[in-house]
Amino acid sequence: MKPGRAVAGFLAVPFLLMVAGLLVIAALAGGLPSTSPVGSRLNAAFNGAQVPAEYREWVIRAGQTCPEVTPQLLAAQLEQESGWNPTVVSPVGAMGIAQFMPGTWPNWSEDNDGGGVSPYHPGDAIMAAARYDCALAKIVRGYIESGRASGDVQDLMLAAYNAGPNAVLNYRGIPPYAETQNYVRVIRTLMNKYQDVTPDIAAGTPFGSAVVEFAMRQRGLPYSWGGGDTSGPSMGFGNGAGVTGFDCSSLVQYAVYHASGGKLLLPRVSQAQVTVGQEVPRDFAAMMPGDVIGFDPYRNGDYSHIGIYIGNGQMVHAPKTGDVVKVSDLSESYYANATWSVRRYG
């Protein structure tokens, strides 16, 4: 970080408040807006293989702090700031992998790795960088919404990280500083290294069809317990440790998020995903492609599996450890004999 950067003094919006926005899901019933096609920045899976292995899980974790700070953006930013060097000190005194200035660091630091708080601890610094980015994203979004600045939220967030939010406000957008303009441009370019972009789905595609398409594109990826998020497949934990892929609920979260153009962030787990959206009868005549089916195999209220209906009595889902994302027939006894909760999000 460079001297003189302003520090925002507030906390990021809690996750539960973002989930509350799902109560207005019906507004998406018309499908993807024809004037706002799904862009490559949203339709891009994180390519964690490009991140040094010792920092990969920190980048994935930090990349879940807020929607604007994806793992691929954060990875590009860290490469630009320090070249992944956790011990570097800049000529002006910026410290560590995220290049925090001494005066800024205390406002965002926490002991995330259990080893004490230090800008030279990669876990602490990477998480702090994401918190700071998210705070700046909230500030610049406010500028845009009030008409005091214009531009892309992520671009203005990066500009504010480099030059401070007051500079963004004063110039009503990215400041005309060569360093700041280059900073934004370089990070946007570096993001290509850390993401795999799939072709866009055509604007105007019905929402349910887009949900199916985004999920079907993941066929063949491994099941990874705890893996996957809105950015794409990632390494899981427990039974998913060492496996990069999706579990059942992250596949649903990913497909719905991208089909909505980034407007809908579902809860992460299946038990919560079946509590939002519109309830649909368990009836193939009433169900539509893109509806989501939660399964309670023991009929005890535990919806432990979830998939996406694709029509013709079939679904696409991430079944279990050792399997892959695939299409299955809903007549299979495990699914047919379970209690269903069918939900429609658009």
Rank of each mutant, 00 (worst) to 15 (best):
A160T: 05
I60L: 11
P14I: 00
F214T: 03
Y177E: 04
G39T: 14
D155W: 13
P102C: 10
V117A: 00
D302R: 07
H121T: 00
G147K: 12
Y254S: 01
S249K: 07
A160N: 00
Y183C: 01
L42I: 09
L23F: 13
A318M: 09
V38P: 02
A94V: 11
I126M: 09
R5A: 08
P71F: 05
P33C: 07
E179S: 04
D291F: 06
F237N: 05
L330I: 09
G208A: 06
A44L: 00
T70S: 14
R61W: 09
K2W: 11
A12E: 13
Q50Y: 03
W58G: 03
F15M: 03
V243D: 03
D323E: 14
H305S: 09
I25Y: 14
W108P: 04
G232P: 12
S333A: 15
Y335I: 10
K2G: 00
W340M: 09
L17C: 02
L42M: 08
G228M: 03
Q314H: 13
F237Y: 15
D133L: 12
G142K: 15
D152G: 13
P206V: 04
G147L: 11
Y303V: 10
D302P: 04
Y143F: 15
G39C: 10
Q80H: 14
S224W: 10
A98D: 11
S224R: 01
Q77M: 14
L42H: 02
G147S: 15
Y334W: 14
L73S: 00
S150G: 15
R217H: 01
T65I: 09
Y303T: 13
V327K: 00
R344Y: 08
E57A: 15
Q195S: 15
V276P: 02
S90N: 05
N47M: 00
R141F: 08
L190A: 09
A53S: 13
P281M: 09
T180F: 06
D229K: 06
T205V: 09
A167L: 08
P199Y: 12
S333N: 09
G63F: 02
H317A: 07
L23G: 10
G232V: 10
I310A: 04
E145I: 00
G83Y: 13
F100C: 14
L266Y: 00
N107G: 11
S333D: 13
N170Y: 10
P33V: 05
F284G: 08
S150M: 13
S90V: 05
R299G: 14
P267L: 03
D111F: 07
E145L: 15
A8I: 09
K263G: 05
G30N: 14
G313I: 05
L221D: 08
M1H: 11
T198K: 12
M1E: 07
D113G: 15
P233F: 10
W105C: 04
A129H: 08
G346L: 07
A318H: 02
S234P: 05
G204D: 07
Y345D: 01
P71K: 06
I126C: 02
D155Y: 09
F207M: 15
H258R: 15
S333Y: 02
G262Q: 02
R299L: 07
